[in-house]
């Protein structure tokens, strides 16, 4: 089960995709669908185990800040079950694997 949840919020789509690419290449994590928040803000959803998500978020933030501005980033080691059910944070590859 993917437990940890990492979110990188950037201003701009280009920085977000750079963060996603750096994150997914730096650790064994999987990405959820990117979220359009409006006002030019984009969220990148990263799922995996805690250590991998931490490393991935770190790498993503560093890569994205070279190009655009990173508004916020967070790592939730154990997201609440209800959160996972309601919010669109499931990894894209979830349907393939389950």
């Amino acid at each position: 089960m993917y437990d940890a949840l990492g979110i990188i919020e950037t201003l701009g789509f280009t920085a977000a995709m750079q963060a996603a690419d750096a994150a997914v290449k730096s650790a064994n994590v999987s990405l959820g669908k990117w979220l359009k928040v409006g006002g030019g803000k984009v969220n990148i959803i990263i799922r995996g185990d805690v250590a991998a998500v931490k490393a991935a978020v770190e790498a993503g933030v560093q890569a994205a800040s070279k190009i655009g501005t990173v508004e916020a980033h967070v790592v939730i080691p154990r997201p609440a079950d209800k959160l996972a059910k309601k919010m669109p944070i499931n990894p894209l590859s979830a349907d393939k694997k389950q």
């Binding site: 280009t14 995709m17 750079q18 996603a20 690419d21 997914v24 999987s30 669908k33 655009g68």
Partner: peptide, 18 residues
């Protein structure tokens, strides 16, 4: 112009995202 970027070889999951 806000910014530009080139990802020489993006990961499959990034392509899947798009």
């Amino acid at each position: 112009l806000v910014c530009t970027n080139i990802i020489p070889s993006a990961h499959e999951e990034v392509f899947e995202q798009l």
